[in-house]
Design a protein around this nucleic acid. Sequence first.
DNA 1: TGCGGAAGTTTTATCGATAGAATTGGGCGC
DNA 2: GCGCCCAATTCTATCGATAAAACTTCCGCA
Lengths: 215, 215
Amino acid sequence: MQANIDESLTTQVHRRLRDDLLRGVLAPGMKLKVQALAEAYGAGASPVREALSSLAAEGLAERLDSRGFRAAPATVQDFDELVRARCWLEEVVLRESLAAGDLAWEEAVVLARWRLKRLERADAAWEGAHAAFHRALLAACPSPTLRGMAEQLRERAERYRAVANRVAYPGRDVGAEHEAIAEAVLARNIRRAMALLQEHYGTTAVFLREALSQR
Amino acid sequence: MQANIDESLTTQVHRRLRDDLLRGVLAPGMKLKVQALAEAYGAGASPVREALSSLAAEGLAERLDSRGFRAAPATVQDFDELVRARCWLEEVVLRESLAAGDLAWEEAVVLARWRLKRLERADAAWEGAHAAFHRALLAACPSPTLRGMAEQLRERAERYRAVANRVAYPGRDVGAEHEAIAEAVLARNIRRAMALLQEHYGTTAVFLREALSQR
DNA sequence: TGCGGAAGTTTTATCGATAGAATTGGGCGC
DNA sequence: GCGCCCAATTCTATCGATAAAACTTCCGCA
């Protein structure tokens, strides 16, 4: 795992903080004390503070007037809003991706699907492959800005999944859902792809909402 | 103009920097030297650095590996992409705003339109009223996240307008365009509102693209 | 005449220290 | 026993200093 080569401390801390936020190591709502984080990551206060400022702008942290930072809270309301926003946003991003996707994009989708299918849900690599799959679907959308926004929402959702992760999905075959989505996308069947994707998000939402509300 | 009461230096600097970026005082591509900015705003390096980190995450500045920050560059390509992204995004945000808008929202639109109409384009308050008008159109969209994203794109566009601002809009009646948009929105005529809004952006784009490419 | 590089100058990234705001924990009066 | 106020303690925001990196300038050599 090489890193660090010519990468500022701030950047490193930023990435590690983001990871820890996404994986729920830093739980939603938790106070983020600068000094503690600084020690944990082996840096001074300045890099940590800068990283937190960025993360706040990205919506993963919050800055309270003059009482420091905290991990963005996770609430049922926020989650519902997130899911809705994601459906609406991906509605156009997916549409444009399908409209512009070429052969190379199709192949990338096939590949991402294969890599995801191969892994067990419990595998440490699953989360990454899952992210890659969803990213691949949207990759052909010609607007980097919109793709970036979709990615931001995907990350927020990922965090919710991590937080509530011990929930099982009784009677659900997530793999099959992904399969169906990929099929529809490759067939350029926009309506069907949209519907399946939204259902996919909706189903996950039901379980997460459940898990969240009883905490 | 009260401010400063219980507002951290970082926050103040952030706002002032954003303003200066949006108004083109800090021109696109310009190097943003921490020390110079610190003196200009009467602060130390830390607040400036934190503010720049945030602005970078918001897309108004850029952080170069280990050579500081600069104002986000303005290019014709970036601008084209921005306009496209904005049209696509506002397509859904406006739709949902129209779908959810109640009486109070309608009245806010009427008010914003009136305030804008009253001002001359050259008036210092015009830019603010213009922003408020466009914001009012989308204000009823129930997703704060999407509204925020739309706002971010609006700001980027505002910066382009400021940069190329000395261009005239020969033979164009911007006021009439706004009137037409407001009418369509109040009539809940989604198709027409969308079409007018996109044309509005498109027309501006033609002028700005012109102004940009000859710099 | 133009290039490579040494020396000097800026600028960045980051640390450690510190004043001042919050928070916490008691102790006191009711 | 309960709420309120003050002191002790914890954190935040911010500064000034500094090593290291990135630019410039300028000079000697081909």
